[in-house]
């Protein structure tokens, strides 16, 4: 999923301070799962904003609405009835959702309430970690299902660097060395021969190095 965290309240308040009617929009997808921008978080932020403004002696109308998905035009259309009554839209979706709202509702300022973080997985309740960097050329098949791009601090392709100590990365004892994990997993799978595969220097063009990326499925595209 795409993970995100709420921006500090102060920053959000500052961004919406000049508006009297705010449409606060959540998203039922990834940001709901990572407890950053779902219906509940929309309620919490609305409540927090309302109290902040009351404290400052200002009364602001905050309308809450959570879409099934903010990154899909068909769901974003649902807001068309509500947008007219708002001076600004405050989005609790990832960056894709914010941009989709901005594209559809061109005459309204659309502001982000979240900082979009990474593509990750849930380690345990309340903890999410980066797992995929969307590099466009997956090597997980030869690295034991552990990504050296997303999980190695240096994104190196052929074995650990000199900073790997007792399975930990030199940047912090809390960070596992991805290549240590890869080696242990390949050993457990009896696939250590895969460790010998020399990967070429990474071509970063499919990872975004050649500009913004687009996928076109000709059988689906209209």
């Amino acid at each position: 999923m795409i993970t995100a965290e709420r921006k500090p309240l102060e920053e959000i308040v500052e961004s919406v301070a000049s508006f009297d009617r705010i449409l606060l929009v959540g998203c039922n997808e990834c940001v709901t799962v990572c407890a950053a921008g779902g219906r509940k978080e929309v309620g919490l932020l609305a409540s927090a904003l309302n109290m902040t403004f009351l404290k400052g002696g200002k009364s602001v109308q905050i309308t809450e609405h959570t879409l099934e998905r903010q990154c899909d035009p068909e769901y974003v259309e649902e807001l068309s009835q509500l947008v007219g009554g708002a001076d600004a839209i405050l989005s609790m979706a990832c960056g894709a959702g914010v941009q989709e709202l901005a594209r559809r509702y061109k005459d309204k300022p659309v502001l982000p309430a979240l900082n979009t973080m990474f593509m990750g997985a849930s380690e345990r309740a309340g903890v999410w970690s980066e797992r995929c960097a969307g590099c466009g050329n997956c090597v997980l098949g030869i690295t034991g299902g552990i990504c050296p791009i997303a999980r190695c601090s240096k994104r190196i392709m052929n074995g650990p660097c000199g900073g790997s100590t007792n399975g930990k990365c030199e940047i912090s004892d809390d960070v596992d060395c991805a290549w240590h994990l890869i080696w242990e997993r390949l050993k457990a799978l009896g696939q250590t021969d895969l460790y010998e595969v020399n990967m070429d220097a990474k071509d970063w063009r499919p990872a975004g190095g050649a500009g913004p990326r687009t996928i076109v499925r000709e059988d689906l595209a209209e």
Binding site: R39, G43, L54, K55, T63, E64, H65, T66, L82
Partner: peptide, 18 residues
């Protein structure tokens, strides 16, 4: 409470789902 200064908070608009 610093937010009310003795006054009750006003009602806030919500869509049906929220």
């Amino acid at each position: 409470s610093p937010i009310r200064g003795g006054k009750p908070a006003p009602a806030r608009a919500q869509t049906k789902a929220s």
